[in-house]
Amino acid sequence: MTSTTRRFSPWARLTRAQRENLNGQLLTAPTLLVILAIVIVPFLAVIVFAFADLRLVDIPYMSLGTIDWTLDNIRDAMGSQAFWGALGTTIAYATLTTLGAIACGLVTALAIRRPFRGRGVIRALLLVPYVLPVIAAATIWRTLLNPQYGLINAFGLEFLGWDRPIGFLNTTTYDVFGIGIPLTLLTVVAFEVWKTTPLTFLFITARLQSIPGDIEEAAALDGASNRKILTQIIAPQLRAVVLLLILLRFIWSFQSFNDIYLLTGGAGGTQVMAVKVYTELITRADIGSAASYGLLMSVILAVLLAFYVLLTRRKEAL
């Protein structure tokens, strides 16, 4: 490679800007190649499959020329109760986990804001749920919530006067004083909040640490109360990072598969879109239907994102 830089080589005759241009394109070529093969082509394939009558058994014989084009997949999906149910569950799940994780992260970050002895260690320990492999986290939670030997049920039966163990992972609605609550959905939400709070905590802590201390000190000297300092000085500084976290958390939890599938397998009213795509593909062996669920899911996510961007832009303009 070094030979190209020797004098009199064609490379040496290029101007600096030309060289930089070429270098930039060469260096990004591998990235683009990988993304093209594993992301862009497959995404185009999703669009094709969504309009194709295709099942898993057809894979060995399929080719672009022999596809039976059809609108049935999309029509069936949008006409089915299961689709709208999954969409509602997904939106509820994504919204609750986003807000929950941000609220918990915010409270923890504020509590740990001032320096004290052992803060570094505590901060590191608070990150454990995020670092834990999801399979380990799910196994531990399944054990905790197990009706026979789980800690939570054992505790409830012994000390809280429960009549019988509660099936946290397979109860679609649980009656509390005559009001039905979606128990298992709330359980998977709690799991996701637990698992992702460290990330929101980290982002908010990073932002808090970059607020110069003297602003606060000046406000305190001027007689501002702690509450005033929090609402008038800290809160506005956190706005941008909270908006970013809302966006990122919502996108990620909207497509969450592992956490829910490993905890419940989609039982107990936790059939979110991602789990639905999986069952259409593997259990029902229907590629066309799975692809149409996936495509609709991406479109809905894109629409929600566009809506969010518009909304936050407009607020900024005011």
Partner: peptide, 23 residues
């Protein structure tokens, strides 16, 4: 492109990747 890849749902890509890689 890199940003949009980051945001694209993995489960959506799983369908064609499964099909194409099995092929």
């Amino acid at each position: 492109i890199i940003l949009s890849v980051y945001l694209l749902p993995g489960i959506v890509l799983a369908v064609p990747l499964f099909v194409m890689l099995s092929r």
